[in-house]
Design a protein around this nucleic acid. Structure first.
Length: 422
RNA sequence: GGAGGAUUCGCAUAGCGGCCGAGUGCGCACGCUUGGAAAGCGUGUAUAGGGCAACCUAUCGAGGGUUCAAAUCCCUCAUCCUCCGCCA
């Protein structure tokens, strides 16, 4: 949620941001207009209320005829107050609904444009030359079968498309990745968290996932709860309606959870394998910090993501996501894309967003220092999303015979240097 | 799933339909006292919105209702506790 005071004072900045995202610019003027109406309604209600409070007091003190006369006045006034109050409530609700439609202000450094207009910040590592190695790489589905690690056929039989079983070394690989991720998160000062994945509407709404992203969310209607698509939701909502002491900041959580995504509107996209699935496990980093520290924290989250990829010995690139492709909460977003040999392309494996005060304001999370209470900033970043990391590891580290070398960083967790054929 | 009880200012509690935005204790901050500390004494101690300000308005789990007037009465919901049932 954008600060309404900021919008009043800097409407041009908000207009420019909306334009950069390719979103409704007129919304800004609609909000300015209704905000004025709202303040008038509030003032009117408060004036009437003040009168009523005073009158009520005198009714209590009065006696006899005097009281009867005062009561009559008071009754008439009570109706006016009620009318003014419902008008106020109505305009306030309308204002809020409009303000909630605004996306976060764009970072001025974020590239402008659509999905294709990202800026590549750097490349790390070099894609392997399989020609030089003398064999044609197998894709992760094939390797998963050879190793007895991934079973998409039975996944489909039991749970439908985009479902899978991780078996044997596939399952072990998940445990190793999670353990390595949590271990590095601990080293970097994160508190490990296993959050609820079934959350109430307030949590979903507050984190901004019931807006444009709503159709990708599973809802359990009978109990009015949602399955989260990322632990960002329960981690952000963890401190909903709380005021945190300034000396506790930054607060860093590493959440490990299953993630559920309907993947509506992606028919035909990534149908093979486990690149795009309905359910997967992920370790997510989440930070609450002072707004002035958010930019530096964003750089740190990105660095930790890079460190993970480097430890997995996978070539990747970092992109600065363009304005039109940012989530509504993000002021700026960096994605890391890993090299996937059989696709001859870089594919997204992690993503980190700076949400500045936008998300915290929606969730009513603030911090308190000697100067008072203020909105704080929230940031999130993927440490590891299991299936895509498994894809990257299997494909990049495969040998001609279908066996796969285990990155050194994972060897202590797996006890082997190589995955053998099943 | 059933039966009871609870939810008030950081914590613990008091609260008669008007004198309650709300008392007390603890905690915390500042001051006095002291050679220094403790104790003692005094003052202060929520959030949001509006106003240059004095100040005004709202908030006693949430939402409705009754009333001139609701922390207080009524209804719905949420959460927590106790007991019973079921259960990984």
């Amino acid at each position: 949620m954008i600060d309404i005071k900021f919008l009043r004072e800097n409407p041009d900045v908000v207009r420019a941001s909306q334009k950069g995202r390719g979103e409704n610019v007129e919304l800004v003027d609609q909000i300015l207009a209704i905000d004025e109406k709202k303040r008038a309604a509030v003032t009117e209600f408060e004036a009437l209320r003040q009168e009523q409070n005073a009158l009520s007091k005198s009714v209590g003190a009065a006696k006899g005829d005097e009281k009867t006369a005062l009561l009559e006045n008071a009754k008439a006034l009570a109706d006016k107050v009620k009318a003014a109050d419902s008008k106020r409530a109505e305009v306030e609700e309308q204002t809020k609904q409009l303000v909630l439609q605004l996306s976060n202000l764009l970072d001025t450094e974020a590239p402008i444009g659509g999905e294709e207009d990202f800026v590549t910040i750097e490349h790390v590592g070099t894609p392997r030359d399989f020609g030089k190695d003398g064999f044609e790489p197998r894709d992760h589905v094939e390797l998963g079968k050879l190793l007895g690690a991934i079973d998409t056929e039975r996944g489909a039989k039991v749970a439908g498309s985009r479902s899978y079983y991780l078996t044997g070394v596939g399952a072990l690989l998940e445990f190793a990745l999670v353990n390595y991720a949590i271990q590095s998160a601990l080293k970097n000062g994160f508190t490990p968290v296993i959050p609820p994945v079934l959350v109430n509407p307030a949590a979903m709404e507050g984190t901004g996932f019931l807006g444009q992203a709503a159709e990708n969310v599973y809802r359990i209607e009978k109990d009015d709860v949602y399955l989260v698509g990322t632990s960002e939701v329960p981690l952000a909502a963890m401190h909903m309606d709380e005021t945190l002491p300034a000396d506790k900041l930054p607060l860093r959580y590493a959440g490990y959870s299953s993630c559920f995504r309907r993947e509506a509107g992606t028919y035909g996209k990534d149908t093979r394998g486990i690149i795009r699935v309905h359910q997967f496990d992920k370790v997510e980093m989440f930070t609450f910090c002072k707004p002035e520290d958010a930019k530096a924290e964003h750089a740190r989250l990105l660095q930790w993501e890079k460190d993970f990829l480097i430890a997995m010995e996978i070539p990747f690139r970092v992109i600065d996501v363009a304005s039109g492709d940012l989530g509504s909460s993000a002021t700026r977003k960096f994605d890391i894309e890993a090299w996937i040999p059989t696709q001859g392309a870089y594919r997204e494996v992690t993503s980190t967003s700076n949400c500045t005060e936008f998300q915290a304001r929606r969730l009513n999370i603030r911090y308190k220092d000697s100067e008072g209470t203020k909105a704080l900033a929230t940031l999130n970043g993927t440490l590891v999303a299991i299936p895509r990391m498994i894809v990257a590891i299997l494909e990049n580290h495969q040998n001609a015979d279908g066996t796969v070398n285990v990155p050194a960083a994972l060897q202590p967790f797996l006890g082997v240097k190589k995955f053998e054929l099943a």
